[in-house]
């Protein structure tokens, strides 16, 4: 099976029902995408599939054949992703950092779809868990991004 990840084509051996997460981490060695729960509860494994934020732990790899997959490793190659990372650094968002790959992916997906999201949109979309409680920092960074960096 062939996968398009970060604008490169990989040929993968895993069975069709293997979660994309483990193909990315083990077969391709891209460990920036994290495993937290395996059942779509936490969001640590978020990647973009054709620009849509997707929890890779519940994404059978055969369902994304032919799609363009973006992982955190390529986040700065994306203009929106780069801005998100900058905001994350400016607001000093991460604590332990384990959830943050997923948070950054979710943020990027939202901003690509809706460059000036309202507070409600941000709340609706930024639902990944963070055990370290960085939620308010994420909110602040998102508010900044939503205003194109004007606010905050």
């Amino acid at each position: 099976m062939e996968l398009r990840i970060n604008r490169e084509t990989y040929s993968v051996q895993s069975e069709g029902d293997t979660p994309l997460l483990w193909v990315i981490r083990d077969e391709l060695g891209l460990t920036g995408t994290k495993y937290g729960c395996g059942i779509a509860q936490c969001g640590a494994c978020s990647v973009l599939v054709d620009g849509v934020v997707t929890r890779s732990c519940v994404t059978p790899v055969d369902s994304v054949e032919g799609s363009e997959i973006t992982t955190i490793e390529a986040i700065e190659a994306d203009e929106t992703g780069r801005r998100v990372v900058e905001a994350w650094v400016a607001h000093q968002v991460p604590q332990c950092g384990y959830c943050q790959s997923g948070q950054v992916m979710a943020a990027t997906a939202l901003l690509r779809e809706s460059p000036n999201p309202s507070e409600e949109e941000i709340a609706a979309v930024m639902v990944n868990l963070c055990r370290c409680g960085t939620y308010n920092a994420i909110k602040a960074a998102m508010a900044d991004l939503a205003d194109g960096g004007e606010r905050g």
Partner: peptide
């Protein structure tokens, strides 16, 4: 003072035990 680990943690570059890899490794 700005934290030293924030950029790596915002870009998936930070390495946790679960990410450790060495040659010839099994899972």
């Amino acid at each position: 003072v700005k934290r030293l680990d924030v950029y790596e943690k915002s870009t998936g570059k930070a390495v946790f035990a679960i990410d450790a890899q060495v040659e010839g490794m099994l899972h």
